[in-house]
């Protein structure tokens, strides 16, 4: 979605702000919705919120950087989230993460230059019984080994974009 024309992005941001304007205590919900819609919280959004709702930019930055669900940089087409929660950690999540870093070619927290993949770690995906677990764009993969993850990544890479 990082590829959306600039005007569309701005229109979208305004539309979301409209929904929350005039209510109090909505900043987090508003930012979450922007994150959901745009896949990140762009600078323009922060500026717009500041202009229209009068919330200081520093406050908005503070919220965005506090919550792991929000991102200040664009995310790739595939958001690969490797669970490093306790249950997964005990079952070898670290090795799955290393394999993911190798297969995707970026470190956790980074996005590939072609905006195809973003690699992240998360604290728990809520299916701890199946650790190690990885979620890619809403689809969950359980009982993973480094090898199966490599295969999944190379399948995603292989498909025509």
């Amino acid at each position: 979605m990082g590829m959306m024309p600039k005007e569309d992005v701005e229109a979208k941001i305004d539309m979301i702000i409209d929904k929350y304007a005039g209510k109090s205590g909505v900043l987090i919900q508003l930012l979450l919705e922007i994150q959901r819609e745009l896949n990140w919280v762009p600078r323009e959004a922060i500026k717009r919120i500041n202009e229209r709702l009068g919330i200081p930019e520093s406050e908005i930055y503070r919220v965005v950087s506090f919550y792991t669900a929000m991102s200040l940089t664009p995310r790739g087409k595939y958001l690969v989230r490797v669970c490093t929660g306790t249950a997964c950690y005990i079952r070898g999540a670290q090795r799955v993460l290393t394999a993911a870093e190798k297969a995707i070619g970026v470190k956790a927290g980074e996005t590939t230059d072609d905006l195809k993949f973003t690699l992240q770690t998360v604290n728990c995906l809520g299916c701890c019984a199946l650790g190690p677990v990885v979620e890619i764009n809403g689809k969950y993969y359980g009982l993973l080994t480094p090898k199966t993850l490599e295969n999944i990544i190379s399948n995603l890479r292989g498909e025509s974009s």
Partner: peptide
């Protein structure tokens, strides 16, 4: 109320802060 998932946000006063629209 959808919380944005920091561990400490589950603590009672943090959670109430978040519902009030402040940082959790």
């Amino acid at each position: 109320h959808r919380g944005a998932g920091a561990f400490v946000s589950g603590e009672s006063t943090a959670l109430m802060n978040a519902i009030e629209g402040k940082v959790g």
